[in-house]
Write a protein that binds this DNA or RNA. Structure first.
Lengths: 202, 202, 202, 202
DNA sequence: TATGAATGAGCATTCATTCAT
DNA sequence: TATGAATGAATGCTCATTCAT
């Protein structure tokens, strides 16, 4: 006599539907932007009716917000995973990767869309701000950490300054990704391996 | 005594109207984005009827294009004017300046909007690409130039790599401007003066 | 037991909607002309929202084209059905009939509208041209056919000339219908029965 | 001390302006139809400002009405001039002539436009009706007239019937002119010379 | 749960007409 | 007399959202 066996299954299905919708929406948003992608297109991509989407999301805005949250979470994880001495290499390898995305992965053009939307939607602005803080802290933390802990062993003030610069560089790279997807990888790798260490050197 | 005094006056007035429209449009686009700002709002902001706008611009698209061109031109001028040994200081001083804009000045959030739009509109993508090339060349040129000519005296390959990184940093800074308009100036200035020289050092 | 009962019903409904729209549009076009009738009026006449119409027709132009095709098809059928020795009588009886139309019937004033539109819209011009050819061929064929086959047994060149004149007369009659809907039927009948045989006599 | 010498000159000038406008309007209406031709285009064609037109005509409708009146007058004159035994030849020669028009001449496509407009505008309908009556009377008169007076010497009832048919044929020809401007002239001439005499024969 | 037909407010754009100059 | 800038209502059309089924 399980409490609500039906409900559990239903909940799983509901979650699957939400995922289906978000997958479709992300795909559409990347291709057409938040405003350019209509609910009809998203529904078609998700292989369901437009009406059904509203059972799982309150509005198109809610879908956008969900995608924003998720994207920022993925980006946060990325930073957490990649802040170690090989950082330049990782940055170069990530460049342009999203296009080969399966499932929902980060997308530079989505970050652009999100940044643009944040200048109008305070809710998105808040989420983005939260993300910014996390990233900056993660970078600063890495730069401060002892070398044997994989850090750069910089002192507090120094780390603060360089974390800021590093963050700008990382985001500038994301922006570049959307504009110059075919950028020469060897050049990029060489540039990062040449310049980033200089930025972080004591 | 002038050949066609009426026509001259008329032309001046026409130009004033165009300016009036572009001012209003820029204001609206910054606040609501290219798609979020309707012709009605632009007209109201410009204090004229919506129909009148079409005497001066072929379409909303044409207004967007005009603003894009102008913004990119302003950015190009900025780079041309500021590539000299004091570059870090200049970057820090420029940060957040547009908000105190009189007339039509650069706007970081517009650059964002432009970048996002470029992923869909090939015409805007082309303009942005042209801008990118100009900037990269200007930076590379500066880095290659002799020290006595105000340059950094780097050799070609080196300059190419660092120009790319510099461009990413600069654009990352513009992005940051839209998200953190209140960023501590002293921190920013210190960070740039600390890190940029390291990026460019031989 | 049907394979997709839902879809069949839906398709039937969709067809009904298309019909509803075409009925309304035809009514509006007759009363106000292709340009004079706005989508709002058509929607109101069809008792639906303007937006809904676009689920069934791509554009106002598409509606016009659909009506043109249909009208020309009805006219073609008419010619095919009526080319026999009693032609004069039939012409007289058809005169003014459309005004008592139920469902969508031919309308002389629509033919006028179509002819006028054809001078600008090449697609409509092509359709009208096709119709013209069909009619002329049908007439010529009838005039050439043997008497025992219901024809007029004229030789080829003769038939060509008289088909042309007959076509002009028939269209002149349609024109007259729009201008003089109350024309004395007895006069018309007498005139046709007197003159048409003379036109076709060997 | 002439009464109002200024006024006379002014009146002449005013009349010239009206003519100028009507010339331009006719040209535009033939090319784009009554609704397709905008006041801006007419003004440009007349080489004057849009506003000035309103000093000479109350509205666009008034221009249309003026053109209608004039066209119908020209058509009336044509019928009066051409109702004589050579009628078939004249009809054939007139076919397609308007395209070589200088000044303001009849235009088959204008007649079409007028007929279409008449189904909506009662004022135009009345003018067209008046024209119809004149034409029918002229034809009937010609058919009744003695042979030595250039007529066809038919009796009254006969003439009435044949005038109606002739009118239909004539208008059908005008319609055909708009659809088949390149119609083989020899065929047309032969057809008219073959068929019209039969229509009028005693 | 799922559909997709239906709505209605909103969009960019056009155009006959007016009016300050 | 003449201009053409300016208006504003109307146009065809789109799209997020709702709702009967």
């Amino acid at each position: 006599m399980s409490a609500r066996p039906r409900s559990e299954k239903a909940e799983a299905r509901a979650e699957a539907q939400r995922t289906r919708i978000l997958d479709a929406a992300q795909h559409c948003f990347i291709e057409h932007g938040f405003h350019g992608a209509g609910m009809a297109l998203i529904a078609e991509t998700a292989q369901m009716s437009a009406g059904l989407i509203y059972r799982y999301f309150e509005s198109k805005s809610a879908i956008i917000r969900a995608i924003v949250e998720e994207q920022l979470e993925l980006l946060r994880e990325d930073i957490a995973r990649n802040t170690h001495p090989d950082f330049p290499t990782v940055l170069a390898e990530e460049y342009g990767r999203p296009h080969q995305c399966e499932g929902r992965r980060m997308s530079a053009s989505l970050l652009l869309e999100i940044s643009a939307e944040a200048t109008r939607d305070p809710q998105i602005a808040a989420a983005l701000d939260d993300y910014d803080t996390t990233v900056r802290n993660a970078l600063q933390d890495w730069l401060t950490r002892a070398r044997e802990a994989g850090g750069m062993a910089l002192d507090g003030e120094d780390a603060r300054r360089r974390a800021l610069m590093l963050q700008c560089l990382i985001e500038g790279l994301k922006l570049r990704e959307t504009r110059e997807p075919g950028l020469d990888r060897d050049l990029l790798m060489a540039a990062l391996q040449d310049v980033v260490p200089r930025m972080l050197d004591r």
